[in-house]
């Protein structure tokens, strides 16, 4: 019998009214918020958008989100059994769900090459 933890995620794209969805995620001691988000993408709803690459190493630094109002890496923030609320970074332009635009301006693909 595994316990579940509630995780509330703010969803929606730029220009849409955001809504919060809560999921019950099977809980394991020590699991990360990213573990929970990926569990949801695999088992419940693959349309949930999140930016991440390295998953474990905390090397890529792509997974910054807001966890209970604090800026955090989703892959190192722990999911407590009581659950958390996850939202996109408030100070960056929203793309969709948990993804904000953190790409440096010089790495953006412009419509045409200069």
């Amino acid at each position: 019998m595994s316990e579940t933890a509630p995780i509330s995620i703010r969803r929606g794209a730029a220009g849409e009214a955001p809504h919060t969805q809560t999921y019950a995620v099977p809980w394991r001691e020590g699991m990360s918020v990213l573990d929970a988000v990926l569990w949801i993408r695999t088992h419940v709803d693959s349309s949930l958008a999140v930016r991440y690459s390295c998953t474990n190493a905390n090397a890529c630094k792509e997974c910054v989100v807001s966890v209970d109002g604090e800026t955090a890496y989703a892959c190192t923030a722990r999911l407590p059994l009581r659950g958390v609320t996850v939202a996109p970074l408030p100070n960056k332009p929203l793309l969709r769900d948990l993804v904000t635009d953190i790409v440096p301006p010089k790495e953006r693909l412009a419509a045409r090459q200069p």
Binding site: G30, M31, N56, A57, N58
Partner: peptide, 9 residues
């Protein structure tokens, strides 16, 4: 095991 976060496997 045990679960490690922020470190590569």
């Amino acid at each position: 095991a045990p679960r490690l976060v922020g470190m590569d496997p």
